[in-house]
Amino acid sequence: MADTKALYQEVILDHNRKPRNYGTLGNASHQAEGHNPLCGDHLSVMLNLDGERIDGIAFQGESCAICKASASMMTATVKGKTRADAETLIQEFRDMAMSKLDLNGHHHLGRLAVFAGVRDLPTRVKCAILPWHTLHAAFNSVASTSTEAEDDPMHAPIGNA
């Protein structure tokens, strides 16, 4: 809990005020809307796949700082990567947020590990996960997803968005 303010200061000062890849894409091949009905957060993720490579990606929406910073860092990280690499990150990010990932072990999260702090904030885990969950839905051509009910990322297995 002691790290919460540090988490905020690190991610918010940068990504909340100056979100990367914020807006829409003209040539999106995939897109999805993500909602958290419990808090009203919603965002859209648009991306363009060039073969298997993420050529362009953008997001926009209304959300808390954790969600927005997570989305900003997600887009910056996955841009230029392959879909398979992005899916690996989605899985790892989700595992990290749910305390299922050993951060000292092998993973690909890099700076995204700053979000490990949400493990101590159970009510905020879904804020951090929502952009990743929405990206996963976009890959799978699911137009809209939610953090609740049957779409709940805490329970739904990956690859089943």
């Binding site: 919460t4 303010k5 905020y8 808090c39 959300s63 954790i66 904030l121 905020r124 804020c127």
Partner: peptide, 22 residues
């Protein structure tokens, strides 16, 4: 400029319990 959930989480850091949401 601050989402209520962020207000709630940061106030909690100061031991202050409020409700955020709808």
């Amino acid at each position: 400029g601050v989402h209520p959930h962020d207000v709630g989480t940061l106030l909690n850091e100061d031991g202050i319990a409020i409700r955020t949401g709808h």
